[in-house]
Design a binder for these strands. Structure first.
Lengths: 345, 345
DNA sequence: TTGTAAGCGTTATCAA
DNA sequence: TTGATAACGCTTACAA
């Protein structure tokens, strides 16, 4: 089963012209007579001619498609980002090829190979939770492939990056908790390897210290799978509850962790915020319907996708090698609801 | 900025062979000496050669990519489906180009043109809420483009389709409500034009009638945007509450409508299920955390995506024209929680 | 067993 | 103003 398209040759034959003349007419070249142009354009229209992008790609040595690698599509933050990527890409005549690492470094590499072997013009990446070794990205980048990182960035590679102020997001959230009377605040983080985990934890620690609260490493738990596996969240929370001085609030550092923590707390009959305050990074639009309505730190995901794509297109379309790179830092949004309500003492 | 890849020509030149010999060695042709083959393969490996898929596409007149059109990526059901589509496509060497109609017929047509002009080999579609005229799809299909529909299907086009038993999903949900003592059950539906709306409403009506309850058209409200616009849900619910005999339960017929109804009910201080029972189609994994935990009808989204893709690939790769088409009907899953709890009388 | 040449659809260059 | 030709990277008759 195959879809047969009309080619320039068909038009040339039908009109008794050469393919080059037809091509010129279609591209509105100056070296063409108005009549011929009109004739060709009309006929092309009538038989629904569309230039073959594959042939164009081969000729121009560019595919007009960009690759995207994220951990998971079915995740509010990433699907919102993809939304932004897609709209900017499409309106610039690019298409988007999406792939998921599912937090696995292996799958990420497979995807990377796949995408590059599919002749993409550039790449937008948020790295997997498992990735320690960024040399494949680095090599590719050094060989001339434009890459933009967002959210989970790679500090060692000097290119455009788009993030929120993760430090501030966590800092503000913890400050808010302290302001509401919480004094023993734990952090449930994703993979230690991720840039976002590091930055957010820094913010968490700084807020504690600036408020005269001690930073206790036992109060920081890592979930290498970022909450994709509920068990790891269960273990983290259970360990926190077994501490000599139990925390009275949890800051969770990513989407699935936030809802994961709540799931675990609920299953253990621990009331939120009564027995445990909770605030976390999340981009789900259902958090306000949850019981209790969740306080969240939200990222401007759509905008991040748009910016990343604009920057990538700029790299792709730049005539000369780009050497000056930018890291765009956006503001996270703190949305205060019930789950971090003032503590009753 | 451009990424330069190694070509067969480079290998041929380096090894003093012709491009055809190199090509044969790489494709493991029988008409080649073992030594030459080994030599070429080794060298290709060493310089990290990858065949240029664009050139291959041009030669083979196929792009090994499939297009997907859905209403919205950032929607649990669709992102889960895309998950399934992507995994099957990728493991068969295809890539996936995704586009969103955002429930607009215009944008759907733009996407359709865009995708076909990008030489895709086939198309997976769930139509927009606005689409009444399917002639573009029909034409494309008749001109030989393999298309598979899922969820929101087009009855007039005879091709593979993948759906759940929407009738049964709604029927079972209403039967459950009736069993729990609800006697005045309203339906909040998406666009009237969608196949899923029709089928689900049929199931709703049948369940009422079989239980001796009257079907009242005032009890059926349509939201043309499928809940993407909260106001339309607000209006639907408000109208229902203004009826002489108010409903005591709502069946909502799609993802965003279900959470939308809850949002509206909450904002109007109407307790669920106390004053109003609620059950609806949804694929969000947060529904159990919501207050009250939502009873839902869930679709096997991942599986639907996988099946649709397998069927599409079958169409694409079929040597002769396919004339026998299949509509796969999967079972929806009824998940009973608090929001439809037994009514206190 | 290897090489030559044509062709996939398009555009750029050169010649007419 | 138009046409012939080569080229993009690859495969495949056909020729050697």
């Amino acid at each position: 089963m195959r879809f047969e398209a009309v080619t320039i040759k068909d038009i040339a034959k039908a009109l008794g012209l050469s393919t080059s003349t037809v091509s010129r007419a279609l591209r509105d070249s100056y070296e063409i007579s108005p009549e011929t142009k009109k004739l060709v354009l009309q006929y092309a229209e009538s038989i629904n001619y569309h230039p073959n992008p594959i042939a164009l790609s081969l000729k121009e040595r560019r595919s007009r498609s960009i690759g995207v690698i994220v951990a998971e599509i079915a995740n509010s933050f990433f699907s919102q980002t993809i939304d932004g990527i897609e709209s900017v890409a499409n309106s610039n005549g690019y298409n988007v090829i999406i792939s998921q690492s599912r937090e696995s470094n292996d799958k990420e590499l497979v995807n990377l190979n796949y995408l590059t072997s599919r002749s993409i013009d550039g790449l937008i990446v948020s790295v997997s939770a498992e990735t320690k070794d960024f040399s494949s990205f680095k090599e590719l980048f050094d060989r001339g492939m434009p890459i933009v990182f967002f959210d989970r960035i790679v500090n060692d590679i000097d290119t455009h990056k788009v993030i929120v102020d993760n430090y501030k997001g966590a800092y503000d959230a913890v400050t808010h908790l302290i302001g509401n009377g919480y004094t023993s605040i734990a952090a449930v983080s994703g993979s230690e390897l991720l840039s976002i985990s590091k930055d957010r934890l820094e913010g968490y620690k700084a807020a504690l210290q600036e408020n005269g609260l001690a930073v206790n490493d036992d109060m920081i738990k890592f979930c290498p799978n970022g909450g994709r596996v509920l068990e790891e969240v269960g273990q983290a929370v259970t360990e926190l509850l077994a501490l000599p001085t139990k925390p009275d609030a949890i800051l969770s550092l990513s989407d699935k962790l936030t809802t994961g923590c709540l799931r675990i707390l609920k299953s253990q009959q621990i009331s939120v915020p009564g027995q445990m305050g909770l605030i976390g990074f999340s981009n789900s639009d259902l958090t306000e319907l949850i019981e209790p309505p969740l306080s969240i730190i939200k990222q401007p995901a759509l905008e991040m996708g748009e910016i990343a794509t604009n920057q990538l297109l700029q790299l792709i379309e730049s005539k000369r090698p780009v050497t000056e790179f930018e890291t765009t830092v956006l503001e996270p949004q703190l949305v205060i609801r019930q789950s971090s309500a003032k503590k009753h003492i």
